[in-house]
């Protein structure tokens, strides 16, 4: 069980780190990618918590589609936060 605890802590720290980076960075493109990373790690956490249904959805929507839509929107506006 101890390894699950360690993995969960690492994942939690990764999610928090990615989330803070997504908010703080001035580069919107890396912000979108960081949000995607957070989603991906969350989906792995769902898998560890035995919720495969949610994990599939989170991986394809959170890490895939949402990020692509963000990137398209950034392409339409501008890459740098003012």
């Amino acid at each position: 069980m101890i390894e699950f605890t360690i993995i969960s802590w690492i994942m939690a720290l990764l999610v928090i780190g990615a989330a803070i980076y997504a908010i703080e960075t001035k580069d919107l493109l890396s912000s979108a990618i960081a949000a995607g990373v957070a989603s991906l790690v969350v989906s792995i956490m769902f898998l560890i918590l035995q919720a495969p249904d949610v994990a599939i959805t989170e991986a394809s929507i959170g890490a895939g589609l949402t990020m692509a839509i963000f990137v398209y929107a950034i392409g339409k506006t501008g890459r740098w936060e003012k």
Partner: peptide, 24 residues
């Protein structure tokens, strides 16, 4: 994923999202 929703994990939402990511 969506056809086997009642048998295996997954279902309409994840299946649809996977299809959309293919088109993406």
């Amino acid at each position: 994923i969506f056809i086997h929703g009642h048998l295996t994990p997954g279902g309409g939402f994840p299946g649809g999202a996977v299809i959309a990511s293919g088109f993406l």
